[in-house]
Amino acid sequence: MSVTIDRPMVTSSGQALLRALALPVALLVVWQLWALTLPVDTRAPSPASTAEAFVRMSATGDLPLALLQSIGRVLSGFAIGLVLGTVLGTAMGTSPAFRRNIEPIVESFRPLAPMAILPIAILWFGTGTPAALSLVGYAAFFPMLLSTAQGVSRVDRKLVQAARTMGVSRLRIAAKVIFPAALPSMVLGARLSMGVAWTAIIAAELAVGAKSGGGASGGIGEMMFVFYSYSIDMNGIVVCMIVVGVVALLIDRLFRLAEHHLIPWRH
């Protein structure tokens, strides 16, 4: 019985993959055909030349190294934002008085794009990893803070009351009722945080690369900056763009997978 049910599922996921690939492949074909119509000495990248650049950059180890550097910074900055956002968000969600006091500050900083604090970050921390971390942490902090605060403040009061009538202590209610009830909101916040963290690191590395004249910061963003201002390598830039996009997609998929395990009752 389970075999007959499993079979169509496998086929449909195969079909889904085909359907998901159809559009990107079609775009690549159009792009290649368009590139072929251009004069040979043009700098315009084509799928073939981009693929060639990708292989070359991977072989020298430059691309994997830059990627690892960027991912390492994102993860550390994200962790900082996650911890601060969770702690302050929980406080905001639990205490209306604390929320009233901190909300104006939060709301006046939130619209300030991470790039706008870059000058201060560079002046304070230089152009290395600490500056990048502070920027990523800043970006990741807000979505986590607001989602956690909302999740915690919207916990169904009846559930807390039910636990109290079963003689459950306040500390245990926090761990066994409020935390799981707020978890879906927090996981969503973490996913949004990771998205903006990844955006912020590329922007930060690009800008820090610009300031220091390249070479000082490292990472995918800096690599793009070098291709842009020194070697004028369009293929390299496109490779970086695609890698950034694919990594973002993979991160998002990882989060969805984690969501499945962390919030099984929602599926």
Binding site: D156, K158, Q161, R164, T165, M166, G167
Partner: peptide, 14 residues
């Protein structure tokens, strides 16, 4: 205050 000597069954079950 609340205590486990008095069990409650809520309207929406909670």
């Amino acid at each position: 205050g609340p205590g486990a000597d008095r069990g409650v069954m809520f309207q929406d079950y909670a």
